[in-house]
């Protein structure tokens, strides 16, 4: 392999970009888990919905696809709130297996509703900037990658400010730290459930838009692979930890791209599992996770 600092930098940039989409998914998962202590296995399907909503609005309006974040995120927030209200709230606390299996029903419903609406063929849209490549320190970086990285950072900053500075965000963090305590302090924890699920779904919607914009193909069944990667990141970073999800996402994206670079593209999806197993053997609760309950 022609090693060298520029090659490593190049792979790092690919990893950074790949990590961004996974980070958005993983943070959503962790936010929901933190507050509700539920893992939403249909999270990849929310990303898929985000992708299709972007696709539909793009086909209808022809706007710059990045602007369509303003369509996919609110739609998905609404979808998340509805899903939480109708499916997860009735079964919260009735047993972990129930909470796991209800997402399976959701996966079926969402995937096939999407297949009914948009048919199951693979689709792709093209970003207006897809031909522009920047050259930084001798490394090629498509403009889209740069925009995606910056967009993700902006979303993370907004999320950080929301969680740290607003009353609602503080209430959410309180609920995630101690549900009973939060309830005693007069926080409406059920509203927090709804909010966390909404925000988690909105982040998945943003990930869906970025997925589409970066020129990756999608169909109604594409959600499971990114979801698995998000799970790997959640396990690396620790269940429920948002900083863990960011660091885990970066580690994951970079590791994946180094694996593709050195082993070949066929390993792309298998890598997630190998990383997962390594982490689980070394530290079953994740690198940054708290010890098991």
């Amino acid at each position: 392999m022609a090693g060298g600092i520029d090659v490593i930098l190049q792979v790092l940039i690919w990893g950074l970009y790949a990590g961004c989409i996974y980070i958005l998914l993983a943070i959503g998962l962790n936010l929901i888990f933190g507050v509700m202590k539920v893992v939403n296995f249909a999270h990849g399907e929310l990303l898929m919905l985000g992708a299709y909503i972007t696709f539909t609005f793009y086909a209808l309006s022809g706007f710059n696809p990045y602007v369509l974040l303003a369509a996919s995120v609110p739609t998905l927030i609404l979808a998340g709130v509805i899903i939480e209200r109708l499916c997860f709230r009735p079964i919260l606390g009735t047993g972990k297996l129930n909470e796991i299996f209800i997402s399976i029903g959701l996966i079926y419903i969402i995937q096939n509703a999407a297949a009914l609406i948009w048919t199951d063929e693979w689709r792709i849209i093209h970003s207006p900037y897809e031909k522009i490549t920047l050259s930084i320190f001798g490394v090629n970086m498509p403009l889209d990658y740069l925009i995606i990285i910056i967009t993700t950072i902006l979303i993370l900053i907004v999320l950080y400010l929301f969680l740290r500075k607003t009353r609602l965000g503080k209430a959410m963090r309180a609920t995630s730290q101690n549900r009973k305590g939060a309830m005693l302090m007069g926080i409406n924890v059920e509203r927090m459930d709804m909010l966390s699920f909404g925000i988690g779904a909105g982040l998945a919607g943003a990930a869906g838009t970025l997925w589409v914009v970066s020129g990756q193909v999608f169909n109604p069944y594409m959600g499971s692979i990114p979801a698995i990667k998000a799970f790997a990141i959640v396990i690396i970073g620790g269940l429920g930890s948002i900083p863990g999800a960011i660091i885990g996402g970066l580690i994951y994206g970079i590791a994946e791209n180094f694996a593709i670079f050195t082993l070949g593209g066929a390993w792309k999806d298998a890598v997630s599992f190998i990383i997962l197993i390594l982490v689980l053997i070394i530290r079953p609760t994740g690198i940054f996770g708290e010890s098991a309950e």
């Binding site: 888990f33 893992v39 296995f41 972990k96 297996l97 796991i100 499971s224 692979i225 979801a227 698995i228 799970f231 790997a232 959640v234 396990i235 269940l239 066929a266 390993w267 999806d269 298998a270 997630s272 599992f273 997962l276 197993i277 689980l280 053997i281 079953p284 098991a292 309950e293």
Partner: peptide, 28 residues
């Protein structure tokens, strides 16, 4: 690998596992 894990981890690992095996079967 999994028996010591809590339900969530077990479900997450097994969720991916079948797809990873599929990937290995069609590529490696």
């Amino acid at each position: 690998i999994c028996v010591r894990l809590k339900e969530w981890f077990l479900a997450m690992v097994t969720f991916g596992f079948a797809i990873i095996i599929q990937t290995l079967m069609v590529s490696q």
